[in-house]
Design a protein around this nucleic acid. Structure first.
Length: 474
DNA sequence: CATTTGCCTG
DNA sequence: CAGGCAAATG
């Protein structure tokens, strides 16, 4: 395996920029100390170059969190993805979905937003989810050799069966079987669609069992959420009178290995392997079992999403010595959620790594370096805003069009594989304003002025999505 | 005392 | 990003 295939080279430009940024910031700091701290005089002396505030067209979907599957995204994914998987698969096709044209699917999806009768509502959702699941299971890009690993998955974390596959598996890079920008673009689209799907599935599950909590979360748009297995939810009973019926099953050896999941609301083949049924009529099902089943389903889905994730990331080796460039990529993506991960979090999200003192400190060092870069960008941007004449922090914002965001995104997700969570933008904006205010008031006179800001920001970490716990690609 | 953090440097 | 080191942390 040649590391140069990965992203080692991709940091060079940003590294040099980092040095430049540091030099500039240090220079401005020295000048302030030399010449006094009059804000006005400082503004005139600053050497930070003027950055043109161009508006860059962003290509992302309207919604940026995993919580909901937007109609546009669903439809585009469903229609655009030309799945060429063999039709001989034994998957039971969604009868209703198949009969629908893309247009009619769209209309059903659109009805989601309005207040329709409950049955109609669930039906539309079911069709929507089913369409995506079906397309995913047919995705031509997921190809894995049999592993020969016995699996009674479902109750067990899928990592168990995947850990047993001590094989190197190489995925086509550019120039390979799936090379080309079109393929990468398609993969990216699919990944994002699946990210949203994952959130959608979570919603469905929550809605089935804990409708009130689900509704409550629906009101909190833009906030990333994860399943929480707390008492509050586990004591709730599903509502009566709903037709909603969600079957999750894995019905073949290969699919069990891959952690694939399909759903349909009409029939479930009784084959060996896990067979999960989420049905509101099953009120007798012990809560613990329901939780376990749901968790198993989520685990499968996470792994499924991870499969595409790993395709985007590239070559992967199981159980390799030390941290790889892919681990670095993953760490950078995790940074979008968590700026201050403790060692426990790191162990959770890098389960394939045998942690020793060296590895741990290296990972911690990575995040330290991430933060350093992050805060340097923030300070730089804040000083720039001050020079631009901004005098109210409310005039500052961080959007995907922002120069600041672009700099961060290039550093943490250069390949642009990942859809940055909206929460990250919020935190970035808060950070920017903290720096802005501190500098405006002249707090940067104090050598340790940034520590107060660090204290604020370190409390804004959010949960890292379950997807990152998967060991599928590592 | 062992870890972790922050800062600086290459 | 990694090394090194002083300071902070527990």
């Amino acid at each position: 395996m040649n590391p140069s295939l990965f992203d080692h080279g991709m940091h060079t430009s940003s590294e040099s920029n980092l040095e430049k940024d540091k030099a500039e910031l240090q220079q401005t700091g020295k000048q302030r100390n030399l010449y006094g701290d009059s804000l006005t005089s400082y503004r005139n002396r600053s050497i930070i170059s003027q950055i043109p505030q161009k508006n860059i067209q962003h290509k992302w979907a309207v919604r940026d969190d995993f919580s909901c599957l937007p109609a546009a995204a669903v439809s585009s994914y469903t229609i655009a993805d030309p799945c060429q998987e063999d039709q001989s698969s034994t998957h039971p096709k969604g009868s209703m979905a198949e009969a629908l044209s893309p247009t009619s699917r769209l209309s059903i999806i659109a009805s989601h937003e309005t207040n329709h009768p409950l049955n109609e509502y669930h039906r539309a959702k079911r069709v929507r989810v089913e369409n995506i699941i079906q397309n995913m299971s047919e995705s031509p890009n997921i190809r894995f050799p049999g592993v020969g690993e016995r699996s009674d998955a479902g109750t067990r974390d899928n990592r168990e069966m995947l850990r047993g596959t001590k094989r190197k598996w190489r995925l086509p890079q550019s120039g390979g079987g799936c090379g080309g920008k079109e393929d990468c673009g398609k993969l990216r689209e699919q990944l994002w669609a699946m990210q949203r799907l994952l959130g959608e599935i979570e919603q469905r599950l929550l809605q089935v069992y804990w409708p009130s909590s689900s509704e409550a979360e629906n009101r909190e748009e833009g906030t990333a959420r994860t399943l929480e297995w707390d008492d509050r939810k586990s004591v709730r009973e599903p509502p009566e009178g709903s037709e909603c019926k969600l079957h999750v099953h894995q019905d073949s050896e290969a699919e069990r290995r891959l952690g694939r999941v399909k759903m349909d609301g009409w029939q479930v083949p009784q084959v060996d392997g896990i067979h999960l049924t989420f049905n509101q009529g099953h009120k007798n099902l012990p809560e613990a079992l329901k939780c376990e089943l749901t968790r198993a389903a989520m685990s499968s889905l996470c792994n499924m999403v991870s499969l595409h994730f790993c395709i985007l990331v590239g070559v992967n080796v199981l159980n390799k010595e030390g941290l790889t460039p892919n681990h670095l990529k993953k760490a950078k993506l995790i940074f979008f959620y968590c700026r201050y991960p403790n060692s426990n979090v790191l162990k959770t999200f890098f389960p394939d790594i045998k942690f020793n003192r060296c590895i741990t400190s290296q990972l911690i060092k990575w995040f330290s370096n991430f933060r350093e870069f992050y805060y340097i960008q923030m300070e730089k941007s804040a000083r720039q805003s001050i020079m631009d004449g901004v005098n109210d922090m409310k005039d500052l914002s961080v959007t995907r069009n922002s120069e600041l965001f672009r700099a961060l995104n290039v550093h943490f997700d250069k390949a642009n594989d990942f859809q940055v969570p909206g929460r990250f933008l919020e935190v970035a904006e808060i950070t920017l304003r903290e720096f802005f205010n501190a500098i405006l008031v002249g707090k940067d006179f104090d050598p340790s002025w940034k520590k107060a800001i660090y204290k604020v920001i370190c409390k804004l970490d959010s949960e890292v999505p379950e997807v990152f716990k998967s060991t599928v690609y590592l």
